[in-house]
Each structure stands twice: as structure tokens, then as C-alpha cells.
Simulated assay, not measured.
Amino acid sequence: MGLTQIEIRKLSKPNCRSCQVLGYALAEEMTELEALGATVVEHDITQEPELVDKYKITSIPVLIFERNSIEMARINGICNITEVFDAVKQARESR
């Protein structure tokens, strides 16, 4: 059996400096994240405003970690990559 797939939803908007920094950090670690069974899906909330209500977004950037379309973890704001890896692990192992 393979790794449980985790979808990391990155909700952000253009011209957000923190969103850009987080995007670069995720891009640098993409190979490692994919090895852990995680994929990153980017969402521009100016293009998909319905996601603000769906995910109850109050600030950006936000990373939402989903397993089988169920939110298992969330990181609000800028974070370090260790927190992202910890959240992937938590999302995979949570019951």
C-alpha cells in the first residue's frame, strides 16, 4: 500500500509578499513533499472567492492539509518548511 495522499491547498492572492515567499519555499521542497505523498494545489482567492467562505479564511497565506477531501491541518500565515513537513505528517497520521 502506498502513502496516504495529502493535498496541500495554498490559498493566496497576487502581490502578497508573504504568499510569494511561502510559494518559493514550497517550490524548493516540492520533491521532498511529493516523496511524502503530498501535492500542492495553488488557489488565487481573487479568482476563486468562494474559497474564502468555504475554508473560513480570515488572512492569507493559508495552507490547508487535506486527506480524502477532509481538512486535517492548517497553517495560517508565513511559516518555516519544518512546520509544513510536520503538518503533512500530522495529516497523514491523524484518525
Results as ranks from 00 to 15, higher is better:
Glu93Ser: 13
Glu48Thr: 03
Val88Thr: 09
Ala35Gly: 07
Arg9Leu: 13
Arg95Pro: 10
Ile57Glu: 03
Thr46Leu: 06
Lys89Ile: 05
Cys19Asn: 07
Pro61Lys: 04
Met30Asp: 13
Glu7Trp: 02
Ile6Ser: 11
Met30Glu: 02
Arg92Tyr: 04
Val84Met: 00
Leu33Cys: 07
Gly37Asp: 11
Lys56Tyr: 06
Thr82Asn: 05
Glu34Trp: 02
Val40His: 01
Lys54Gly: 13
Pro61Val: 09
Ser59Thr: 11
Met72Glu: 08
Val88Cys: 03
Ala87His: 09
Lys89Pro: 00
Leu63Trp: 10
Glu7Ala: 12
Glu32Thr: 10
Glu7Thr: 14
Val88Glu: 00
Leu3Arg: 10
Glu28Thr: 06
Met72Phe: 01
Val84Ile: 09
Ile81Glu: 02
Lys89Met: 04
Ile64Tyr: 00
Thr4Gly: 04
Leu26Arg: 05
Ile81Phe: 01
Val84Gln: 05
Pro14Arg: 14
Ile6Cys: 02
Glu48Pro: 04
Glu32Met: 06
Val41Tyr: 08
Leu51Met: 05
Ala87Leu: 09
Phe65His: 06
Arg95Phe: 10
Arg17Asn: 03
Val52Ser: 13
Pro49Met: 06
Gln47Ile: 03
His43Ser: 02
Ile75His: 12
Glu7Cys: 09
Leu63Ser: 08
Arg9Asp: 03
Ile60Gln: 13
Ser59Lys: 12
Tyr24Glu: 14
Met72Asn: 01
Gly37Ala: 11
Val84Phe: 11
Ile8Val: 14
Arg67Trp: 08
Leu33Asn: 00
Pro61Asp: 00
Glu66Phe: 10
Lys56Phe: 08
Glu29Phe: 01
Leu3Asp: 13
Lys56Ala: 14
Ala91Asp: 08
Lys54Thr: 12
Arg9Gln: 10
Met72Gly: 00
Leu22Gly: 04
Lys89Val: 03
Thr46Ile: 11
Arg74Phe: 02
Ala25Thr: 10
Glu28Gly: 12
His43Arg: 12
Arg74Thr: 05
Ile45Arg: 05
Lys54Phe: 13
Ile81Val: 10
Ser18Phe: 15
Thr58Gly: 08
Ala27Thr: 07
Ile60Trp: 04
Gly23Glu: 15
Lys13Ile: 10
Cys19Gln: 14
Arg9Val: 07
Ala38Trp: 06
Phe85Ile: 08
Ser69His: 06
Glu93Tyr: 02
Ile75Leu: 15
Thr39Ile: 12
Ile78Trp: 15
Ala27Met: 07
Glu83Ser: 15
Ala87Ile: 03
Asn80Trp: 10
Gly2Asn: 09
Phe65Gln: 00
Asp53Phe: 03
Ile81Arg: 02
Glu83Cys: 12
